[in-house]
Design a protein around this nucleic acid. Structure first.
Length: 589
RNA sequence: GCCACCUUAGCUCAGCGGUAGAGCAACGCUUUUGUAAAGCGUGGGUCCUCGGUUCAAAUCCGAGAGGUGGCUCCA
């Protein structure tokens, strides 16, 4: 099997890297060096900092080692031998102690040159394998060391930070090059670069990191997206609500958020010394809209939709473009209903999500995000209630004939979720929409209705976000489309390019015709060459470029160039306008 | 927050101890064009900020801010 072979190759390369490191920096302490997707890494505690240039030297040495036809062999050793062999390796000793505790067998892998009596061990590492038998199985040109990064020992921020060296490894140089090319392609689509380039959003050092500012074009796109979600929600009986962006801390003490997230809130103190917080989510506010009056069961469900900003004090090192910000808009909605209405409400939101995502060319996968019974302290409410809620969500996924991915431990602290994962044009998966069932928060806020028997009955709430956050959704959409939005969403849909000033009048008339039809068009004046103006429209990712010359003026037609297409199509003005108006109505891709 | 690296004109970058340069963009003039870069000219910089070393700092050192890639976190 090819994959197994690559596992062994990657794993063995991580050992060779460690060998090269010890050879050059003998005092280095070894962490671990596992295989990962597309390659491997190894964690080290260097005695002195190393640089990218040092990594290049190490890469060269690893390549030499790979060419030396070194053998890999496994050896089972006793705990005492293990302690002796790794005397100077504190991290290995920690691992050995754990193996001892578990009474697991301890093995090492020796990397050696020569055979029989001439055999010389150049490196050995605590390892259960597997590995290649000989480094001749490794293609020395199929790998490269890529990045230098910090990583906590055993992934805990309480531990020491080690230095991690990442490597890529493939069977052939071509596969490696293709992968690197693919990464470069992804980089070209990076929303952090494309967004400002297409003039959608910007950041300001004075405003602060993680706080995106939206330009007119970007704001237009946000509005169009939000309007689309609203259009879908309205059909299903949602009503809009609005809430302030701060609250007394009492709200979050009651909801349970204070305990769990108080460090992640932006705190606000009034002049009188009262403690407020910027809202990091909307559910607690929305519960108080529901709680304004007594409800008859006949009036349920109550469905509240609200696109609104949330604020979270994220760690500075975590911020990244629009994917992780400190202020973001959620297209949030909460349904307050009785338990026996949950199924139908879930199905409605499911439909909304499945009407929304195909309009961008996304395919969706579904994940059932469950609680982790091993960590009850992470969740509100008892395990029995959780299991019931989870089985309900499972049956909804089953009814939709979807094989949901199992997301153990992925639940929110108040309830299980059905999460939707969108696959983008580069094959990457992103969590986007979510439907969450919450039996805990309504209880905490004592939300109820009066039932058929005239008695007070507790209700449940459903959290339903279609885009999740507009910022995050846009970051995904920009990279998915490389900035070339579907026609209905493009901030500028049509660029009109008259060949020379003689055609200006006709072009202006066309511009106003398009504006009357609510098409977003711009006119490019004839003081640059045609080629340059076409190029600018292409770079701005404008879906349609209309070239107007003598032929078009005399025939009352337009010559239409679709983005990325060299060939143009000629249509009458009326036919053109009709076609694009329909394309907008249908949100055609 | 932690580790590494980065920050020079609007953008992309060169310069790396002797007080700033290119291409593109902008502006002006010329050009009036058939589908991805016309020509000439002009303006534009507290070289991220604050300290330090030095006769001299964009360049070396320290701190801070912002960014990138990881780690941790993510309601």
């Amino acid at each position: 099997m090819k994959t197994d072979k690559m596992f062994n190759v990657r794993h063995s390369l991580s050992h060779l890297l460690a060998a090269a490191v010890l050879e050059k920096y003998p005092k280095t302490k070894l962490g671990i060096g596992p295989v990962i997707e597309n390659g491997f890494y190894y964690d080290f505690e260097f005695q002195e900092p190393i640089s990218e240039a040092d990594v290049k030297v190490l890469e060269k040495r690893v390549r030499e080692l790979a060419r030396e036809k070194l053998s890999f062999s496994k050896k089972i050793i006793t705990p005492i031998q293990a302690s002796n062999s790794f005397k100077k390796e504190p991290y290995k000793k920690e691992l050995i102690a754990e193996l001892k505790k578990k009474k697991a067998s301890i093995s090492i892998f020796e990397t050696a040159s020569g055979k029989g009596k001439a055999k010389k061990v150049v490196f050995f590492d605590l390892c259960s394998g597997p590995h290649v038998k000989n480094t001749s199985e490794i293609n020395p040109d199929g790998f490269k060391l890529t990045t230098l990064a910090g990583a906590y020992w055993r992934g805990s921020e309480k531990n020491k930070m080690l230095t991690r060296i990442y490597g890529l490894a493939f069977e052939t140089k071509k596969e490696l090059d293709d992968f690197v090319t693919m990464q470069e392609e992804a980089k070209k689509r990076d929303h952090k670069i494309l967004g400002p380039q297409l003039d959608l959003f910007t950041f300001s050092d004075l405003v602060g990191s993680g706080l995106p500012l939206w330009t007119p074009r970007g704001t237009l796109v946000r509005m169009l997206l939000d309007d689309f979600v609203w259009e879908l929600r309205e059909k299903h009986g949602y009503e809009r609500v609005e809430i302030p962006h701060i609250t007394k801390k009492d709200l979050y003490i009651k909801s349970g958020h204070w305990d769990k997230y108080k460090d992640d809130l932006f705190h606000v103190r009034t002049r009188e010394g009262h403690e407020f917080a910027m809202k990091p989510m909307n559910c607690p506010h929305h519960t108080q809209i529901y709680a304004r009056k007594q409800w008859s069961y006949r009036e349920l469900p109550q469905r509240y939709a609200n696109t609104t900003m949330c604020y979270r004090d994220e760690q500075s090192g975590e911020l990244s473009g629009l994917s992780r910000v400190r202020a973001f808009a959620q297209d949030d909605a909460h349904v307050f209903c009785r338990m026996d209405q949950v199924r139908e409400e879930f199905l409605k939101i499911w439909d909304i999500i499945h009407e929304f995502y195909p309009k961008f060319g996304f395919n969706l996968n579904v994940r059932l995000s469950r609680h982790d019974p091993k960590h009850p302290e992470k969740y509100l409410g008892d395990s029995k209630r959780w299991k019931m809620a989870e089985s309900m969500l499972k049956s909804i996924a089953d009814e939709k004939k979807v094989n949901a991915i199992d997301g153990l431990g992925e639940a929110a602290f108040y309830g299980p979720k059905l999460d939707f994962l969108a696959k983008d044009s580069l094959g990457r998966e992103w969590q986007v929409a979510t439907i969450q069932l919450d039996m805990n928060m309504p209880e905490r806020f004592d939300l109820s209705c009066v039932n058929e028997e005239g008695k007070k009955e507790g209700i449940v709430m459903i959290h339903a976000a279609v885009m999740g956050s507009i910022e995050r959704f846009l970051s995904i959409l920009i990279e998915h489309t490389a900035g070339l939005f579907p026609f209905w969403l493009a901030p500028v849909q049509v660029m009109i390019v008259p060949i020379n000033d003689v055609h200006a009048e006709y072009a202006k008339a066309l511009l106003s015709t398009l504006k009357e039809a609510s098409i977003r068009a711009e006119l490019s004046p004839a003081n640059e060459t045609l080629g340059k103006r076409v190029r600018e429209a292409e770079l701005r990712k404008i879906p349609l470029t209309i070239v107007i010359g003598d032929k078009e003026v005399s025939d009352r037609t337009v010559s239409i160039r679709k983005h990325g297409n060299k060939m143009s199509e000629v249509k009458s003005i009326d036919a053109f306008v009709e076609d694009i108006v329909i394309a907008v109505q249908e949100k055609a891709l």
